[in-house]
């Protein structure tokens, strides 16, 4: 019977280790289903968040597994907004081109697929990076999104 139009911000803080990805996915699943997203939309959000966190673990915190990943989720105006913050190496997502899979094959390259997936699966993806301070990626999806 709860009011689903707005939830208080939920927060998860985990260390930047791949073993925590499963926990992060469960966190997103539980919030997104509590506000009424369809499972297909939830699956897309889970993958986008996994990709964002994997990038943080593999790149921002490459040599620092004790670094923290902070995930904040709020639901407002029928939109789920997921903010992911890390304090690792900064990152310039605009330098990542859209992947050309044939070219990837030739170069044995796989990086950059995650960013492409995030942009495809979410309504909005926005990076803010303050070098030496923190990086933030904001992912959002509206309840009526067709993605």
């Amino acid at each position: 019977m709860g009011n689903k139009s707005k939830i208080k911000e939920k927060k998860l803080i985990v260390k930047g280790k791949t073993e925590n990805l499963a926990r992060i996915r469960t966190f997103i699943q539980s919030i997104a289903s509590s506000v009424g997203f369809a499972q297909e939309s939830i699956d897309n959000m889970i993958l986008a968040v996994d990709e964002a966190c994997t990038n943080i673990i593999k790149h921002a915190y490459k040599s620092y597994p004790e670094g923290e990943i902070i995930i904040k989720v709020k639901y407002e105006a029928k939109k789920l907004v997921i903010t992911i913050i890390d304090y690792g190496k900064s990152f310039a997502p605009d330098s990542i081109p859209e992947p050309d899979i044939q070219e990837y094959y030739r170069q044995h390259k796989v990086g950059g697929l995650g960013i492409y997936l995030m942009r495809t699966l979410m309504d909005e993806v926005e990076y803010i990076s303050i070098p030496g301070k923190y990086n933030q990626v904001l992912l959002s999806k509206s309840l009526t999104s067709t993605r």
Binding site: R25, L47, D50, Y104, Y105, H108, V110, G114, L117
Partner: peptide, 14 residues
Amino acid sequence: YISSAGLGVFMAFI
């Protein structure tokens, strides 16, 4: 479930 890290395994060996 599969993420791009999983897809990458196929790219690495093919």
